[in-house]
Design a protein around this nucleic acid. Structure first.
Length: 515
DNA sequence: AAAAAAT
């Protein structure tokens, strides 16, 4: 197998790689690094979790190791769709430039210009930016892009989703024609295809799929849930969420809870906190310092529940998320894949549970068509509780109203009851499915042989106490990131996509929709 | 229908 040491990387970069605990490149790294080092353009079709970031940072650092940047004229440029991703790339550069004297600046919105200006003025080798802030600097005449030797576009399909493509095209136009371009996208939508045809020249095409996207090391489940009354849907969903969390017990060391709307992110986070769960929100309306702080806390394990909008759905690398809860069914099927991909990373086991209300069933169908699998139905734990009532539950009910009142006024605008006809069928199905699907380890074992492995692995991880877990997570972070290394805490040595690749992931989204 | 990103 290829080793990093076979790849012609700068010795000081190799040293940093070794110190980070990596030996062998992932498939995307093995595929992209050699042509990048030769100065060729690269078109990488890959998602995060494949070691994509290192596949451009390592050759870039090697290429930039010689020479120095002039004032206001960065020598390279990395564009990312979100601030958090940009920050993550910046960290990656720090890791691998440890033994070199390269300078970098992170240009993202939500923070002051001043520091960024100072750095640019001094001259930086690497500029890592979100498009808006980069252009802002450019327009103020603070930045000259005519000395850019290497330009990277990361997560291009997400840039497309977010309407950044015009900005990207403009930035391409500001850099010299002779630059080297490294371009990464999870899919090749027609618009992406067009951009690459326009701005890349004879690129080396490297394509890999993420490991285990919706396959065996992520246990999935969905609760079909219908509120007792439409105006109680929010509070009842929150109660259901708490039960789902409680039901997982110690197996749930930490979790991301996704909501479709920013207001619901706030409401759910607040409600969880009220009930004593260690939760904090993250979404684009919160100020950057808070976003950074929250994410940092979640990464290091001091925050257990991250309640998030889709700002956190893609690309975020927190290697040890045990659970993903989809409080809402995402309305774009592909977002489901991205969201649950936050767990089960680096070969670990993960659990992804979703709450589906009747009006979301259409979206659920879309998701199941996309992943070409039925998501197992989980019995509603609240229904079970009703069948054999306990004193504790009625207490929950009473206190359940408290956070609801506070938030009602805020939500009132968004709820016009559009649901009229989606009821009986859902009820029937709910009863039906509840009978067949139990998502606990025992039930799983009977279902499929390949799942036994997971069930036993799970038992092992369940005995980790949450107090000891914090330091354990920290230690694991390095080996998880970039996924090049041996994942020591785990007997599955996963490199790159590993052995299980669902066939649908190799298709374009258009092809997947077509079935 | 909503989220993200420049203010």
């Amino acid at each position: 197998m290829t080793k990093f040491s076979d790849l012609n990387l700068n010795p000081k970069v190799l040293k940093a790689i070794e110190e980070a605990g990596y030996e062998s490149p992932t498939p995307i790294q093995a595929g992209a690094i050699p042509p990048a080092l030769e100065g060729r353009d690269v078109l990488g079709i890959a998602q995060t979790g494949t070691g994509k970031t290192a596949s451009f940072t390592l050759p870039m650092i090697t290429l930039l190791a010689r020479g120095r940047a002039r004032a206001r004229m960065p020598r390279s440029l990395v564009l990312c769709p979100t601030r958090e991703l940009a920050a993550q790339v910046a960290e990656n550069f720090d890791t691998y430039t440890k033994h070199l004297k390269l300078t970098k600046a992170l240009l993202i919105g939500g923070v002051s210009f001043k520091e960024q200006d100072t750095l640019i003025d001094k001259g930086v080798d690497v500029l890592i930016a979100t498009p808006g802030r980069l252009l802002d600097h450019f327009e103020r005449g603070k930045l000259i892009l005519s000395d850019v030797k290497v330009m990277v576009v990361d997560e291009a399909d997400r840039m497309l989703d977010m309407g950044f493509i015009p900005d990207i095209e403009r930035i391409f136009g500001l850099t010299p024609f002779t630059r080297q371009t490294l371009f990464f996208s999870a899919t090749m939508a027609p618009e992406i295809e067009r951009i690459t045809n326009t701005f890349l020249s004879a690129p080396e095409r490297v394509e890999v799929a993420r490991q285990a996207t919706t396959s065996e090391n992520i246990t999935q489940g969905v609760v079909l849930f219908k509120a007792s009354r439409r105006d109680r849907e929010g509070s009842e969903k929150r109660k259901l969420l708490r039960h789902l969390i409680d039901q997982e017990g110690e197996k749930c060391t930490n979790a991301i809870i996704f909501c479709n709307r920013k207001t619901d992110v706030d409401i759910v986070a607040k409600s969880l906190k009220k009930y004593g769960y260690d939760a904090a929100p993250i979404h684009g309306d919160l100020d950057q310092s808070q976003r950074t702080k929250t994410l940092e806390g979640f990464r290091e394990g001091s925050l257990r529940f991250l309640v998030a909008s889709d700002v956190a759905a893609r690309g975020l690398d927190v290697p040890s998320v045990s659970h993903v809860f989809n409080f809402d069914v995402p309305s774009h099927a592909e977002d489901y894949v991205h969201r649950i991909g936050r767990t089960g990373r680096a070969g670990r086991d993960g659990t992804a549970m979703m709450i589906c209300v009747p009006k979301d069933e259409k979206n659920l169908e879309d998701i199941e068509r996309l992943v070409q699998n039925e998501i197992p139905r989980i019995e509603n734990p609240l229904k079970k509780a009703k069948a054999e009532p306990k004193a504790k539950d009625s207490k929950d009910d009473a206190s359940g109203e408290a956070p609801e009142r506070k938030t009602r006024s805020r939500r009132s605008s968004s709820r016009s009851s559009a649901a009229k006809d989606v009821n009986e069928a859902a009820d029937a199905q709910q009863a039906n499915d509840a009978a067949t699907a139990e998502v606990d380890a025992t039930a799983q074992e009977q279902k499929a042989p390949e799942q036994e492995k997971r069930a036993s692995g799970r038992g092992k991880s369940a005995e980790t106490k949450s107090s000891g877990q914090k330091s354990g997570q920290k230690g694991n972070q390095k080996s998880g990131r970039g996924r090049g290394g041996n994942d020591r805490g785990n007997d599955r040595n996963v490199v790159g996509m590993g052995d299980h690749m669902p066939s649908f992931i190799a298709l374009s989204f258009a092809e997947r929709r077509a079935g």
